[in-house]
């Protein structure tokens, strides 16, 4: 209940409102974009690397496809994949971090050393091996990217949990005999959430970057699919002639990162406060 209230309250602070608006705008763009795109994103419609103008609002890319149409189409896959991968990473990372931080048994070192092993493997190498072994499907890609994030999330959550378990309210819950899962969910999770949210935005950007590099290496989404990450890597070569083919998707990714960070910060700030605080102070 507290969490729901918090969710409704966070959008009322200044930067929270900006973040929510920006996120909604971006969602609208990727949902409505394909409907209003002037051209088929995969069709070659003009001379390669044309600058904006002459019928193409953002110019054309290296093959002569319309950049605007590709931008309007290209948000879906990258945002969906990175959001799902990041979300999944948090789900697993939170669970591992909470359990490892709370338990005083051998489970903690076992879990954390396993995380260290994962952390030691270079992410791209890991994804390459994974893709080679398990195929190029989207599911493998998402699971792979999630796995890359899990160890660092688990470490942060574990550290945050350890500073919370010694608190009086956790002791009070232990003393009244609460079950472990309810202590984790009710007493600890809400108090590590602030720490966790602090890097959620950056981690989402991280997922986008990993996906982009994997795509670039030819393991993820395949051309001629329109995808912001793919677009950046495809059009790198022509950046001096036609910067917009790289700049447009890159700016949108940056916009997404900022929006998500604003929302995450606003949620973190709204935890444990009531909105009528100013009234109380009077």
């Amino acid at each position: 209940m507290t969490a729901i209230a918090a969710r409704m309250r966070f959008a009322r602070t200044g930067s929270g409102r900006v973040g929510v608006t920006a996120t909604l705008l971006l969602l609208a763009l990727i949902l409505i974009g394909p409907l209003v795109a002037p051209h088929d994103p995969a069709a070659i419609v003009g001379i390669p690397l044309q600058r904006p103008g002459s019928g193409f609002l953002l110019g054309t890319d290296g093959l002569g496809r319309d950049v605007l149409s590709r931008v309007l189409w290209g948000g879906r896959s990258i945002i969906a994949l990175s959001v799902v991968a990041t979300g999944l990473a948090y789900l697993v990372g939170l669970a591992i971090g909470l359990v490892a931080g709370y338990t005083r048994s051998l489970l903690d070192p076992v879990l954390m050393r396993a995380m260290d092993v994962l952390l030691a493997v270079p992410p791209l190498l890991f994804l390459l091996v994974l893709a080679t072994g398990a195929g190029h499907s989207v599911v493998v890609l998402v699971l792979g990217v999630a796995t890359v994030h899990v160890p660092s999330i688990a470490r942060i959550v574990r550290a945050a949990t350890q500073s919370v378990v010694v608190r009086g309210y956790v002791e009070a819950a232990v003393a009244r005999g609460e079950r472990t899962h309810s202590i984790l969910a009710r007493e600890i999770l809400p108090n590590v959430l602030g720490t966790v949210l602090a890097d959620a935005g950056i981690r989402l950007t991280g997922s986008i970057l990993i996906l982009a590099s994997v795509n670039f290496l030819g393991l993820g989404l395949q051309p001629p699919r329109a995808d912001w990450a793919l677009m950046i890597s495809e059009n790198r070569g022509g950046i001096t002639l036609q910067p917009w083919a790289v700049a447009a998707p890159a700016l949108l990714i940056a916009f997404l990162t900022v929006a998500v960070n604003l929302v995450a910060d606003a949620i973190a700030r709204s935890l444990g406060t009531s909105l009528d605080r100013r009234r109380i102070a009077r």
Binding site: G168, Y169, A175
Partner: peptide, 19 residues
């Protein structure tokens, strides 16, 4: 029942008084 020393950490900051 036990009441702890530090009033600043004996209540869960994320829960309202009533909860």
């Amino acid at each position: 029942q036990i009441v702890f020393q530090n009033p600043y950490d004996s209540l869960n900051p994320r829960h309202r008084v009533v909860d």
